[in-house]
């Protein structure tokens, strides 16, 4: 289900801490919109002249570069499934997307979105700076798996009990540890741990060139002017249409051989939704909130 954005009600949202379920993914650059919709003339008369136009196809593309590497930006920018690298069990056989994981631990009652209560022995296995993934055990189901958004589509039953935690987006950074549990730097995207959810440590993230899974997102791009005006581009449905790609740019333009920044390039296809206002099928909503007291 696309996430709704109402510029009239939510136009003043904080860009650093937007209202749930929106998540700030940071700054981007090179934002480019490429309309692909085709129109055709309806001709009449001799010689033929255009009586009116009809929209033949509906298509739009968006491309840009993320300045930050995070789980979300990496997952958004790639056209394939994105996974967590779970901390491996000791002596586990190597695997390209992470070896068999160390056993998961069970959150205790009293957990919240930002504090995970654990048995003292389990808490001691984490340290400030650890990354955790929290989700249910995989029990042989097929279809979409992962919370709060699906991280994969399972076509046939698998054997890895940790598979859902490998693909989940319910991850967080540990900021404090004590004998009663762990405190996270930010609340878990999935909120309070669901019954049956378990916790594993994560060392990093991995995606693959190829695969058949397409992640779909609702996106809101904001351009803020110096006088407080805002331009919003709201895409209810976006799917990555290119495989993972990076761009390396020097930090210092005058020293191109020096330190560089690696940008994540993303190219997306907008998919249509039906506007309940009048039943029209649309790809993007562009809205403008003028600066205070600016003439309109």
């Amino acid at each position: 289900m696309p996430v709704l954005f109402d510029p009239a009600e939510q136009g003043k949202l904080s860009l650093d801490t937007p209202q749930a379920p929106w998540i700030d993914v940071g700054w981007i650059q090179g934002f480019t919109r490429k309309p692909g919709s085709k129109t055709s003339p309806v001709l009449t008369g001799i010689p033929a002249g255009t009586l009116e136009q009809v929209r033949e196809t509906l298509e739009a593309q968006v491309s840009f570069q993320f300045l930050n590497w995070t789980k979300l930006t990496m997952a958004l920018a790639t056209g394939s499934q994105h996974m967590n690298l779970l901390v491996p069990a000791s002596s586990a056989a190597a695997a390209a997307d992470g070896a068999q994981a160390a056993p998961a631990v069970i959150p205790q009652s009293g957990s919240s979105a930002i504090f995970i209560a654990l048995a003292a022995t389990d808490a001691a296995t984490f340290a400030p700076g650890s990354i955790i993934a929290l989700d249910a055990d995989y029990t042989g189901q097929t279809g979409f798996v992962g919370a709060p958004v699906a991280g994969a589509y399972v076509r046939q039953a698998l054997t890895d009990v940790d598979y859902i935690r490998r693909v989940t987006f319910n991850v967080g950074l540990v900021s404090q540890v004590n004998s009663t549990g762990i405190t996270l730097a930010e609340p878990l995207p999935g909120g309070i741990p669901a019954a049956g959810a378990k916790l594993q440590a994560v060392t990093g993230f991995v995606d693959r060139e190829g695969g058949s899974f397409y992640q779909e997102w609702s996106a809101l791009f904001v351009m803020q002017g110096s006088q407080g005006e805002r331009i919003f581009f709201y895409y209810p449905r976006l799917q990555a249409m290119a495989s993972a790609e990076e761009e390396v740019v020097p930090l210092d333009d005058k020293h191109e051989a020096g330190q560089s920044r690696v940008l994540l390039k993303g190219k997306f296809l907008a998919l249509p939704v039906t506007d309940p206002l009048d039943g029209e099928r649309v790809l993007c909503y562009r809205s403008f909130l003028p600066a205070p007291m600016a003439l309109v």
Partner: peptide, 8 residues
């Protein structure tokens, strides 16, 4: 323009 301000 980054998650943490970078200084050069």
């Amino acid at each position: 323009d980054l998650g943490s301000t970078m200084v050069a």
